[in-house]
Computed example of a mutant assay.
Amino acid sequence: MTISVIIPVYNAADFLEKAVCSAAQFDEVKEIILAEDQSTDDSLEICRRLAAEFSKVKLFQHPNGENRGAGASRNLGIDHATSEFIAFLDADDYYLPNRFDAEKELFKDPKIEGVFGAIGTEYLTEKGKHEFQSKFKEMSLSTVEYPAEGEEVFRGLLSLTPKTFGTSFHLNSLTVRRDSMKRNHIRFNEALRVHQDSELIIRLAYHCHLKTGIIDKAIAIRGIHDDNRITKIIKYTPQYNQRQFLFWKSMNDWAVAQQIAPEYRKRIYLMYTSFDLSLKSGLSKYGSIFLEILKNPDILKTKYRFTYYNR
């Protein structure tokens, strides 16, 4: 198998070389695509140096060196990928030596279009550690709860399985057939500045046959530091709700356009609507909630039903 690893780069000067070296160690990795997104630190110079040192490393920028966000940068990498498979890596994270062990076996089955696994967490700064642990439960291993494949993965990502599957898996652990992405027109939604990875993963799980790989130990490490966007998130604030609303609105637009099964379309609609309602205020908010409950009583089953309404 041949793999193109796509790394979006924005202000990652302190971490980029480690990320690139972690991908370059694999014989299967034929190219490492750096999509530089108008960094304001020394990232571009480091990209150029790495491209000169490693024959695998290829550097690309947006037209006129513009800043377009992580989604557009990953799409830039997809556009230039030439290998049979595509994998992703954030510039402040790194792969472990077992990163593609499961893939080498599972992709012998042509039915399997994507494989994903577990990632670990490393605290790179004390401030980042404090911010992360103050907002999220300890996650030494981010993974799904049990092995799954095909439609079960999609159902799990929508929390429709009888037992807890996990709400998502990290993009760093995903390897996917390039032809499958092309055939199903799967790209990152560039209009989303956050959550574009989660949005793509759900759509990918619907269109492609995904399968769990190594889920009981890490195959990649996520670095937590002062500038992680994830550590800046404060749940249930208007800004947080707005971001979730945009994410689920994009999912709802996709579900309607694709005319996916009613069960799935309804689930996505309820998630979208719960965040839409959370952004309203005053008496109109409670009137809208009442009318939505009359129309869709199942909205009371979403885990957001009171958390957002009462804030």
Rank of each mutant, 00 (worst) to 15 (best):
L174Y: 05
K108P: 01
I234S: 14
S142T: 15
R178V: 01
G120I: 02
F154A: 03
E122H: 14
A191H: 07
L141P: 03
I224H: 06
T125P: 00
V115Y: 02
D197N: 11
I214N: 04
T167N: 11
R177N: 06
P147Y: 10
N184L: 02
E149P: 10
A148N: 04
D216Y: 13
I112M: 03
R229D: 13
K137A: 13
L158Y: 03
K211M: 08
G120F: 06
I234W: 09
T143R: 15
F154W: 09
I186H: 04
G223V: 13
N172S: 10
F154E: 00
S142I: 12
K232I: 12
A148V: 12
T175H: 04
L106K: 09
R155T: 06
Y236D: 13
E113H: 09
E105I: 14
Y123F: 15
I112G: 00
S168Q: 07
I221C: 08
I224N: 04
R187S: 11
E152W: 13
H130T: 14
L192Y: 03
I224L: 11
F136W: 09
G166I: 04
N184Q: 07
D216K: 11
Q133S: 06
I234T: 15
Y240S: 08
L210Q: 03
L192R: 02
Q133K: 08
K211S: 11
R229P: 05
S140F: 05
I233R: 10
I202D: 03
A220V: 13
K217G: 07
H130L: 07
T143L: 06
Y240M: 02
G166F: 15
E131A: 10
R193W: 15
H185A: 12
E149M: 14
T164F: 15
N241Q: 10
I219F: 15
H170I: 02
I234P: 01
H207P: 03
H209W: 10
S198H: 05
I233T: 12
R178A: 03
K137H: 14
H207K: 14
G166H: 12
V194S: 07
K163G: 05
T161D: 04
G114N: 02
E190N: 09
E145H: 11
V176K: 00
D227P: 08
A118V: 05
H130P: 03
G166A: 07
T143P: 08
Y123R: 10
S140D: 11
D197M: 11
D216W: 09
M181C: 05
E199F: 08
N241G: 10
L124F: 05
Q239K: 15
Y206E: 01
K182G: 01
I119D: 04
G213R: 05
E122C: 12
E151W: 09
F154K: 06
I201S: 00
T143W: 04
R193G: 13
A220T: 12
T143C: 05
L124R: 08
P238S: 09
V194G: 00
D197E: 14
